[in-house]
Amino acid sequence: MRNLILLAFGIVFTILFLIFPTQVYENFYFSQGFSDAMYNGSMYIVVAIITAAIAWVAAVIYYYVINSVKFDRWWHWLIILVITILLAPTVSWAYTDYDMAQQNYMYDKETFYFELLNMCVAAVLFIIASFSIRWWSSNCRHTPIPQ
């Protein structure tokens, strides 16, 4: 039962993030021109979907695809976390950079700071996804900390 509650919590949290991405991102990083361009180009929702998808897929891959006794220590989980927080901002940056370039915006510095924030968002989402789904993993359910 506890496990289902945690799964439900993770799903609700992520859906709320996907419903309110602008508020989340702009609350932590706001730069007048850049944020307007992100908002007007509806890029916040796309970045949020990319970040959430990568975080959840990474968690699913770790707990149910890899799911190995050779890769079940907390530092193995940390490796996946690091990959996630590098991959999500990289994909997100590729998307925003392309979209900004289409509109002839030059916000390289702002994009960099935004992606630093997105790293933190990806980390939070990966942690939430991990604690939502790990309970049913046969080999990694006690990673990164015991149940």
Partner: peptide, 10 residues
């Protein structure tokens, strides 16, 4: 410290 050893009883 891994897997089944961490299930109760630990």
């Amino acid at each position: 410290g891994k897997g089944y050893t961490q299930d109760a009883p630990e």
